[in-house]
């Protein structure tokens, strides 16, 4: 046990990661000689540390670059900043016609709407596909999958025309409303798979007891789907936060620009561009994602196993 702690601390550099609930949950390990377990733990941590280095390196490089002057960014792959200059941050924050906070707020609005929409409507659709019998279920499911396969580039123009006709271009509606109409088939399919993994006995028992579909869905399945819902929320956050194309097309007023659209506006390939400012603002814009993941990840693992279901 001792070695494990030491390695964990050395590898992560931070000591907090002890999650008591987690260890409690695990299947009881079979007894093996102590040295075998130590060796196994050591090997495992070494692997984890190696993967961590590969995963962390680019992030650290980006952070280091955000402190470097433009001329030094492209020359070095080092992750150790030679200077700690905050100029890029102050310059980047004000480089475009609005302060960067405008774009952060706009992105937050879009992301917030998208998360609520996806959680609500995708889970509802998933319940129908996973648990209900209805006519045209097969074709409807196929149609849903079809929307995942068609490249956005050939449907964006017809979609743009719809929103333009409704006079809603340059509002957040075209980027949020689809999420309230369960347009992210990825999450419907994800939740269908999770619901199908839940024992059907549960809802059948409830049904016999007189519960309607609303009760079964909201009171029984949803609480058991926490990992799937957390996954949906986190992925929606990240993908919407990074989504460039639709936000570029629908939000053309600088007041409405979101983070990815603003970040691209820093760079012009044919002239001198503020790469330092772009990197600094990239770091700023990744922070909410890191926070969201750090907060959200514990819900990812609160499944059926933690609900006290015996």
């Amino acid at each position: 046990m001792k070695t494990e702690t030491i390695i964990a601390e050395a590898g992560a550099g931070v000591t907090s990661g002890v999650t008591p609930t987690w260890t409690d949950l695990d299947p009881p390990p079979r007894r093996r000689p102590a040295w075998t377990r130590w060796a196994a733990a050591l090997a495992k941590h070494l692997l984890m540390i190696a993967v961590s280095v590969v995963a962390l390196y680019p992030v650290l490089w980006m952070v280091a670059s955000s402190f470097r002057p433009d001329s030094e960014i492209f020359g070095t792959a080092s992750i150790f900043p030679d200077s700690f200059n905050l100029d890029n941050y102050t310059a980047g924050w004000n480089a475009l016609t609005k302060p960067f906070s405008t774009y952060l707020i706009n992105s937050a609005i879009v992301v917030g709407g998208a998360i609520i929409g996806n959680l609500l409507t995708c889970s509802m659709a998933a319940y129908a596909f996973a648990r209900l019998r209805f006519r045209l279920r097969g074709p409807a499911f196929a149609l849903m999958l079809l929307t995942l396969m068609i490249p956005i580039h050939v449907v964006i123009v017809p979609q743009y025309i719809i929103w333009a006709k409704l006079g809603l271009v340059n509002t957040f509606v075209p980027v949020i409303a689809p999420k309230f109409l369960a347009s992210d088939a990825f999450f419907i399919f994800l939740m269908v798979q999770f619901i199908r993994g839940l024992p059907r006995d549960l809802d059948e028992a409830a049904r016999i007891d007189g519960a309607g579909h609303g009760t079964i869905f909201f009171r029984i399945l949803l609480p058991l789907m926490t990992p799937a819902l957390a996954t949906t929320a986190i992925f929606t956050f990240i993908w919407t936060w990074n989504d460039f194309f639709s936000q570029l097309i629908y939000l053309t007023k600088p007041d409405l620009y979101t983070v990815p659209v603003a970040l691209r506006s820093f760079i012009d390939a044919t002239s001198k561009s503020s790469y330092g400012g772009m990197f600094a603002m990239s770091v700023v814009s990744v922070l909410p994602l890191v926070l969201a993941f750090a907060v959200g990840q514990k819900y990812l693992v609160r499944g059926i196993a933690t609900t006290g279901l015996k």
């Binding site: 590898g11 962390l56 670059s65 460039f244 990744v286």
Partner: peptide
């Protein structure tokens, strides 16, 4: 999934690359 010390941290670190997604910084890097 098998409990280990510091796994919340590992989990977060492993997820970082997915956060960066389509960043222009990745192209440079």
């Amino acid at each position: 999934d098998k409990g280990m010390r510091g796994l919340a941290i590992y989990r977060s670190i492993f997820y970082l690359p997915s956060l960066l997604g389509s960043s222009v910084a990745i192209a440079v890097l």
